[in-house]
Simulated assay, not measured.
Amino acid sequence: MCDTTHASPHDAALSAPRPVLGTAVDPITLQPVDEVRVTVLMDNTFDALLVGDGHTTRTGFGPAATPAGQFESGQTAVGLLAEHGFSALVTVRRGDQETTLMFDAGLSPSGIITNADRLGISLDGLQGVVLSHGHFDHAGGLGGLACRLGSGRMPMIVHPYAWTRRRIQDSRSTFDMPTLSKKALNGEGFEIIERTQPSLLVDGSVLITGEVDRTTDFEHGMPAPHQAWHGAGWQHDPHVIDDQALVVHIKDRGLVVLTGCGHAGVINIVRHAQRLTGVTALHALLGGFHLSGPAFEPVIAPTIAALSDIAPHLIAPGHCTGWRAQHALAAALPDAWVASSSGTTYRLTRT
C-alpha cells in the first residue's frame, strides 16, 4: 500500500538500513535464459493508445463484443481493467523449454482473470505463483485464480511474514488491511512454500530473492503510520521484511528484476540481486518502485542517481511508483523508460 504521510526524523531513524536476518547465500549460480516475457496482467493504469516497439507489445481496445444497449449494434468494445494492484505473468525460455509463473495477483478477486480472458491468455499452463509480499493489493486475485484453475495443487512461494496483520493508522483514521490466511489458501488448492532465503526455481533459471539486504542510506522504508501486530501490540513496521523480488539472467544481456512494490527499496533490491548472482549488468527493471507521496518523494532523486549509474536498458515503473517519480524517471532515463499499463508484454531476448 502507498502512504502519503510525512515521516519525522525519528521515523527515519527507526527505518534506517539494517542487514537482512539470517545467512545470505552468496553467490548463487543463476542459469542464463534465452528469453523472458513479462505480461502485466494488472497495473494501476490502462492506456489503450500506447504504442509498442521492438520489445514491447501493447493492448488496445478489443472487438466490439460486449453487450451495451445504448449503441446501435447493441455491443461495445472494452479495454482492460486497471486497479491499485499489481500482477504479472513471467515466461522464461531456455532453448525450446518454456515455463510460466505468476508474480502477484492484483487487488480484486476477479481482476486478473478478467484481464487474462480479454487478452486471450489461458492460465492452464501456469506452473507456480510467487508473492512479492503480503499486502492485499498483491494477493486479492488469488481466490479467483484458484477458481479458474480448479482442482490440483499450485505451488506458491511466500515469505513467512506475508501472514502479518498490518494497518495504516494516523491521527485521523485507522485502516486495517485485509490479512492473508494460510489456511484459506491451502483450502483453495495452493501448496504454500515459505522461504526467507533465496529460492531457485525453473531448473535454476529463476531467482526469488527472499529477504533483501537494506544497504542504501536513502531507502528508509515505510513511515510510522504503517504498523504490524507483533503479538502484544501494534508497532511501526518500516521494513515490510517479506518484500522480495523475482530475478532472471538473460544470456549476454544481464539481469531482469521484477518488483511488486519494492518496499525494500529498488536500489537495495537491484544491488542485492547483483550480489547474489555475481551479475553486474541490469538489463531491465520492472514493477512497483514505491516512490509515491510526500514520505517517499525525497527518495526519488537518489534513486534516479543510482539507476543512472547502473544504466539499465529498460525501466518500466508501475503500480505504486507515483506520478512525480514517473516524470522524473522519464526525464532522466529517456532511452530506457517506458510507460507501464495493464496488458503490456515485454519480450526480452539475448539478441
Rank of each mutant, 00 (worst) to 15 (best):
Cys320Tyr: 10
Asn186Met: 10
Met1Arg: 11
Glu35Gln: 15
Tyr346Pro: 08
Gly69Ser: 13
Asp11Cys: 11
Ala281His: 14
Trp337Arg: 07
His236Leu: 04
Gly231Ser: 09
Ser110Asn: 12
His230Pro: 00
Val25Tyr: 05
Asp26Lys: 05
Phe71Ala: 06
Ala281Gln: 15
Phe103Ala: 02
Gly79Met: 08
Ala232His: 13
Ser15Tyr: 03
Val20Cys: 11
Ser87Gln: 10
Leu119Ile: 02
Gly143Arg: 10
Arg37Asn: 13
Glu72His: 11
His135Cys: 09
Val299Ser: 13
Arg350Lys: 14
Pro294Ile: 08
Gly141Asp: 05
Val299Trp: 09
Ser8Gly: 09
Leu282Lys: 02
Met154Asn: 06
Glu83Phe: 12
Arg350Ala: 14
Val51Glu: 13
His230Gln: 13
Val33Pro: 01
Val158Ala: 14
Ala77Leu: 00
Ser87Gly: 14
Asp96His: 13
Ala77Phe: 00
Leu276Phe: 05
His313Ile: 08
Asn115Gly: 08
Ala139Cys: 14
Ala295Gly: 15
Gly150Glu: 07
Thr99Ala: 08
Ile267Arg: 03
Pro225Asp: 09
His6Met: 11
Pro155Trp: 07
Trp337Thr: 09
Thr215Asp: 05
Pro9Arg: 10
His55Cys: 14
Arg37Gln: 13
Pro27Val: 00
Pro67Arg: 09
Arg172Trp: 09
Gly125Met: 06
Asp137His: 09
Ile113His: 00
Thr209Pro: 00
Asp242Glu: 14
Leu142Gln: 00
Thr114Asn: 11
Pro178His: 03
Asp335Ile: 01
Ser205Glu: 03
Ile112Pro: 04
Cys2Ile: 15
Val279Ala: 04
Ala306Val: 03
Arg148Asp: 08
Met1Gly: 13
Ala273Cys: 09
Ser171Gly: 15
Ala325Gly: 08
Ile241Cys: 11
Val25Phe: 08
Val202Leu: 06
Ser199Arg: 08
Ala281Val: 12
Leu49Phe: 12
Asp43Ser: 13
Pro198Ala: 14
Gln244Tyr: 02
Thr351Lys: 10
Leu333His: 08
Val202Gly: 05
Glu194Gly: 03
Gly62Ile: 02
Val240Asn: 10
Pro27Gln: 02
Ala273Trp: 00
Pro198Asp: 01
Ile192Ser: 10
Ser15Ala: 15
Leu333Ala: 05
Glu219Asp: 03
Met42Thr: 12
Arg167Ile: 04
Leu21Asn: 11
Gln244Asn: 03
Leu285Trp: 00
Thr91Gly: 01
Ser199Glu: 11
Thr100Asn: 05
Ser181Trp: 04
Gly204Ser: 09
Ala184Phe: 02
Pro32Leu: 05
Phe218Tyr: 12
Pro225Leu: 06
Gln31Met: 12
Ile192Asn: 07
Lys182Glu: 12
Gly152Ile: 02
Pro238Cys: 10
Gln197Thr: 14
Cys261Phe: 01
Gln326Leu: 14
Thr66Glu: 11
His159Asn: 15
Leu307Thr: 04
Gly60Asn: 01
Arg94Ser: 15
Phe136Val: 07
Gln97Ile: 15
Asp137Cys: 15
Thr114Trp: 02
Arg93Asp: 06
Pro63Leu: 04
Ala224Asn: 12
Val92Gly: 08
